[in-house]
């Protein structure tokens, strides 16, 4: 319908696009200030790849969030650099409530590991959305049958004999095994951690006999465990998981109170206007509580969590403290 005037002159269009730019931006900004939040689509930046754990969780949550918010919610993946790039993009976006992010546990130790000047304070923390506990998984028919035998080997054999994998160096699943060793009064680096690019390749290497332990989420090992290829010997959670009712917690298995979960959250660039933040917290909570979101997350062995800004900030800082101690012991803190 407007092809008529547009084809009439290329130069006109060109001039308009260049000269009109500033004017248009000003107009758009004025509109946004006037209207009540939200009046246009909201974007959530996911710092990890499409189809991965974080991406899946956020996409499932976004279905409910979108309904509660009343505008479309777009998921955008900004990957690379162990999450640094995506998290930087979230922290530096305009704090208008139209760009949100999915911060993961990495924000508690980017700075400790000297990867980026990012800490939990670099964001407006909204709430955790979900967590996935770590576990210990071994190959069926190998030298370990339970967590007890694993810990005995950790104590009796020279440091570095046992190997474990599941994430990059200093990643959550590395902290999981390092923390367990520390709780047993062993050096954090007792079990040698072999970096891997995600849970699946690490599990595969456990099956191929390349490494001894997978210390990532048991959820990723579910199919293999059911087919009898691997055995989940413990979960690092307070309670047993619904998906693995027969697998003991660490405390049940060896009497040591060690839990570690990787967590996923909704966050925003720092400095959100108060009423926008209140609206996001309110609609986020409502969307998160939607039955479809809850079922979809639980079906996949993910624990839904909604703890709100204050509790989440407290939690994130406590997590950062634990991570800093472990990373220092591992020699990864700089």
């Amino acid at each position: 319908m407007k092809n008529g005037w547009m084809t009439s002159g290329f130069s006109r269009l060109f001039a308009m696009s260049l000269l009109g730019g500033g004017f248009l931006v000003a107009g758009a900004a004025g509109d946004a200030a006037k209207a009540e939040y939200p009046d246009r689509p909201v974007t959530i930046i996911v710092p990890w790849g499409a189809g991965g754990g974080t991406d899946t969780i956020v996409r499932l949550f976004a279905v409910g969030f979108e309904e509660a918010l009343g505008v479309p919610v777009n998921i955008v993946n900004r990957t690379g650099g162990n999450g640094v790039i995506g998290h930087t993009a979230i922290a530096t976006a305009a704090p208008d409530g139209y760009t949100l992010g999915a911060c993961t546990s990495e924000i508690s130790y980017f700075k400790t590991m000297n990867l980026a000047p990012l800490t939990p304070e670099s964001f407006d923390l909204i709430s955790r959305i979900a967590e996935i506990p770590a576990g210990v998984t071994v190959k069926t028919g190998g030298r370990f049958q339970d967590l007890k035998s694993v810990v005995e080997a950790m104590k009796s054999e020279p440091a570095g004999t046992l190997t474990s994998s599941g994430s990059g160096l200093g990643g959550p699943w590395h902290l999981a095994i390092a923390g367990l060793a520390r709780m047993e009064n062993l050096p954090a680096s007792t079990v040698k951690f072999v970096p891997s690019q995600g849970g699946a390749p690490a599990l595969q290497d456990v099956m191929a006999g390349g490494i001894d332990l997978f210390t990532g989420s048991p959820v990723e090992a579910k199919s293999l465990a059911e087919s009898g290829e691997v055995k989940v010997v413990a979960v690092m959670a307070k309670e047993r998981l619904a998906a693995f009712p027969d697998v003991p917690t660490v405390k049940e298995a060896i009497g040591v109170d060690w839990t570690l979960s990787n967590w996923f959250s909704l966050c925003a660039p720092p400095g959100l206007p108060a009423e926008v933040k209140a609206k996001i917290v309110e609609t986020g909570k409502k969307g998160h509580a939607a039955p479809s979101v809850q079922t979809n997350l639980k079906e996949r062995g993910i624990t839904p969590v909604w703890d709100g800004p204050e509790q989440f900030a407290e939690f994130a800082n406590a997590f950062a403290g634990t991570a800093a101690i472990l990373l220092k012991d591992l020699g990864l803190a700089k």
Partner: peptide, 24 residues
């Protein structure tokens, strides 16, 4: 180029955050 997936060391990034993700 980018963060070495094995060691986590940034390589040839010359301080650029974008380059830490490597060349796609």
């Amino acid at each position: 180029v980018g963060l070495d997936p094995a060691s986590g060391v940034p390589r040839f990034t010359f301080g650029s955050i974008d380059l830490m993700g490597g060349i796609n």
